[in-house]
Simulated scan of single mutants.
Amino acid sequence: MTQEVRAAGAVLWRHAGRAVEVALVHRPRYDDWSLPKGKLDPGETTAEAAVREIREETGFRAVLGRYVARSSYDVPAKHGSGTVPKTVDYFSAEAVSGGFEENDEVDELRWLAPTAAEKLLTRHEDVRVLRVFCQLPVGLTTLLLVRHAKAGKRDGWSGDDDLRPLSEAGLRQAAGLRRVLALSAPDRVLSAPRLRCVQTVKGIAEDIGSEVRHEPLFSEEGYWPDPVLGVARLLAIAGDGGTPVVASQGGVIPDLVSVLADRDGVELSAARGGVVPSKKGSFWVLSFRPPTAEDGPILVAADYHPSALPTPAPSHH
């Protein structure tokens, strides 16, 4: 069986006054100009690989935003003749600190306006990815909507179901979420007041020196008596800006996401047969335009990640 080569990268951007610049790197090995990218290390997710490759190739620390696009093409096989498929998953990433120094892979970095970057890029696929990135503005609010990780089976738990804790598998999922969601620099953590929901995101709160704030409207029994209130609460959280993490349940998340997507005209390509996915330990990256004097926050992208452990790439809008 042919082994697919997996890689990840990003459109790395920064503000330049009122304008936006993106970073292109020159790789002397190929004598090309490209977006920062590289192969996944064993045990890495695409998000982790993207941030690591940005740091190694450009010297910048980056904060991940939305998923942008997947690029697929064939590359020469390492062993024997012929080719093997390669996929590169690209994210939007804001440069927040650091600076470029020539390294083993990259001898020059240029910050350019997107139109100038298009002309310098060597490969048409990179131009396509950049154009997808440019379809939405930068500076969006990222809300990370998490379904709690796996808990012990309900029929094997004799206590209050609200107090059913994570299983060993669930603790592994929570550890993965703690690593991957940190790449988006969350600044507050909210959760349905179920132990398994709180446990799933407690490590994230600890890492930012915060507490998990209980949000009863995101539990199944709190949401369904009046879903309009639950949607309004999520929009209020998004409207406060920053990068919130919200933990909820499988009986709530699909409705929340589909209502917002229908309201704001976002296609959910992750949905199959009208079903919005929400596996245990999965998360949605919801990207909102910040509120204006006329409107509240508007959903512009919704990217589903089925796991925070090494898995196939996310489906995206």
Rank of each mutant, 00 (worst) to 15 (best):
D295V: 11
H316E: 09
G80M: 11
Y73G: 15
D187L: 12
W224Q: 08
S158C: 07
S191Y: 12
A50K: 00
V259T: 15
T2F: 09
A49H: 01
L268E: 04
M1D: 09
S34R: 09
E168W: 06
V246D: 00
L268M: 10
G170F: 08
A149H: 01
R52A: 01
G251Q: 00
G273N: 12
T87C: 05
D89A: 13
V5Q: 10
P314E: 06
L177E: 01
V11I: 14
P306F: 04
G9N: 04
G239W: 03
V20I: 13
G230W: 02
W13H: 15
V68L: 14
D207K: 13
G9Y: 02
F283D: 00
L109Q: 06
G98Y: 05
L40T: 05
A16T: 07
A302G: 11
G9Q: 03
E105D: 15
A49Y: 01
W111I: 01
D295S: 14
V231I: 14
L109F: 04
E294Q: 14
S258L: 04
R66G: 07
R213I: 10
D107P: 04
D303C: 12
L260H: 02
V5M: 08
S191W: 13
A50C: 07
R196T: 10
H317Q: 11
E53P: 01
V246Y: 03
K78S: 13
V212M: 07
V68R: 03
G274W: 02
R6K: 09
T200E: 04
E168K: 08
D207C: 09
V285P: 00
G273V: 02
V68I: 15
A205L: 07
V300H: 05
L256Y: 03
A175P: 01
P165Q: 03
E108H: 05
G265V: 01
A192C: 06
W284D: 02
V138F: 12
R128I: 07
K86M: 12
P186N: 13
A113P: 04
A261Y: 12
A7I: 14
P76R: 05
E168P: 03
G59Q: 00
T115H: 13
K37H: 13
D107T: 10
H26S: 03
R194L: 15
G203A: 12
L40W: 00
Y90V: 07
D41N: 11
D226C: 12
E48Q: 15
T45V: 09
S278A: 15
V201D: 05
H214D: 12
R131C: 08
H317A: 15
P306T: 11
R263S: 07
V285N: 02
V246A: 02
V96N: 05
C197L: 10
S248K: 00
V276Y: 08
D162I: 06
A302L: 04
